[in-house]
């Protein structure tokens, strides 16, 4: 089975590296990191991810900008996106801890890796369907 490609866009290389490491250890994930958000579209077109995990607060293009560019790109507009940010808290009322705002799932950066993973898997499943 071909590895599922996850693109992590975050200006924090340490965080993206650790998340990538966890994902790679957790399953069949091919993970690529983008720490400079201005290159995210370019990388994504090349990488063709199955799902994007995008930070919100970033210098230059922020998460919202990146999402809107993805949405206006014919190849990328269907790619599921998870906003992983320190701006929100884990929603205690949902097992995936996400909060849907403006049609986008927001997950707290401080959520357990398992919660983040559950959220990613859920959206991958939804995307497959």
């Amino acid at each position: 089975m071909k590895d599922t490609r996850i693109l992590i866009i975050d200006d924090e290389p340490d965080f993206s590296a650790l998340l990538a490491a966890n994902l790679e250890e957790a399953g069949n994930f091919e993970v690529r990191e983008v720490n400079d958000s201005s290159k995210s579209l370019e990388v994504a077109r090349d990488f063709k991810p199955d799902l994007c995990v995008i930070d919100v607060v970033m210098p230059g293009l922020d998460g919202g900008d990146v999402v809107s560019r993805f949405r206006s790109d014919p190849d990328l507009k269907e790619v599921p996106v998870i906003m992983l940010t320190a701006l929100v808290e884990e929603n205690p009322n949902r097992p995936d801890g996400e909060t849907i705002t403006g049609g986008l799932p927001f997950v707290s950066k401080t959520s357990d890796f398992e919660t983040v993973l559950a959220c990613i898997e859920k959206h991958l499943l939804e995307a497959e369907e």
Binding site: L18, L19, A21, A86, K109, T110, D112
Partner: peptide
């Protein structure tokens, strides 16, 4: 939260 998230991930 960011470094906290890193520590947790680590």
């Amino acid at each position: 939260k960011n470094p906290l998230a890193m520590i947790a991930m680590g």
